[in-house]
Design a protein around this nucleic acid. Structure first.
Lengths: 139, 139
DNA sequence: GTATCTGCAAAACATTTGCAATTCT
DNA sequence: AGAATTGCAAATGTTTTGCAGATAC
């Protein structure tokens, strides 16, 4: 990040760095765990006992609008959030449920074979078993 | 399809070809419109007035289990269904809302750079504007 | 005739909205 | 003080579940 503090970064993106906003952004940025709203709420409640789920929704929708986060729609009906907005792949392990990032160079994405279509955002999702869960002896 | 009838195809996949199941499968197969549950229900109700949404859910979940359909989770919280279970790309137009298929050769998918991970299914989604909506004069 | 399937109603979730109270500067 | 933000409760939307009645073979 090219910014000294999260607060400055939020300001530069037109977001007033209120306590709960800063808390949620720091959580996303440091945990990189692609959490659901439920997870964010549960994990931050001890640190911010007056936090409400409505605020988590409000703040995430604001971040989305300002392009500070992207949503991940990898499986079922669970929306997850990612503070990394660059194009990259996501892998969901069907055994342990974790979501992993992986690098994909922009130029390695497959060609869009639809004439005249204007792509804006690309998502590449892989579902399977992670290295740990794929080794039976470790279970 | 390598089968004379949808009914035979369902039987071969361990599914009793009941009226509503056959109706729903034929709809998915011929329309190729990546419908939501709501769409399927609304479109088939005239043809099958006793159809219920519960049955649409039941049947789709059965098809999913037997790998006759795949789900598409391209945007928002709307689950869509696709009777084409081969790997292919999906493009969602943010203007008109339609979902388009496009071909991607299996070998053109980007490399999964996670050591020891076992991929099972790959989704490649592109969001943007379709050819029609991208041309202002046609709007 | 018996298993299975269907449809209703209710339950379980996820997300949004309206509004009054609170907080920020 | 004044504008923006928050939190509650209710509304909305989607999917699942329990169960009684209907259907398939």
């Amino acid at each position: 990040m090219t910014h000294d503090t999260v607060e400055e970064y939020l300001i530069e993106n037109g977001i007033r760095p209120l306590q709960k906003r800063t808390l949620i952004y720091k959580y996303l940025m440091t945990k990189k765990n692609h959490p659901t709203v439920e997870t964010i709420y549960k994990e931050l409640l001890p640190k911010s006992p007056s936090l409400s789920k409505t605020t988590v929704y409000n703040v995430l929708n604001l971040f989305l609008e300002k392009n500070l986060v992207q949503t991940i729609n990898i499986e079922g009906n669970e929306l997850r959030y990612d503070a990394n907005t660059k194009s990259h792949g996501h892998f969901k392990c069907e055994t342990c449920g974790k979501v992993f990032d992986f690098e994909v160079q922009e130029e390695n994405y497959p060609q869009l074979t639809l004439e005249g279509f204007m792509p804006r955002k690309t998502h590449y999702y892989v579902v399977g078993q992670c290295a740990t869960c794929a080794v039976p002896s470790l279970n």
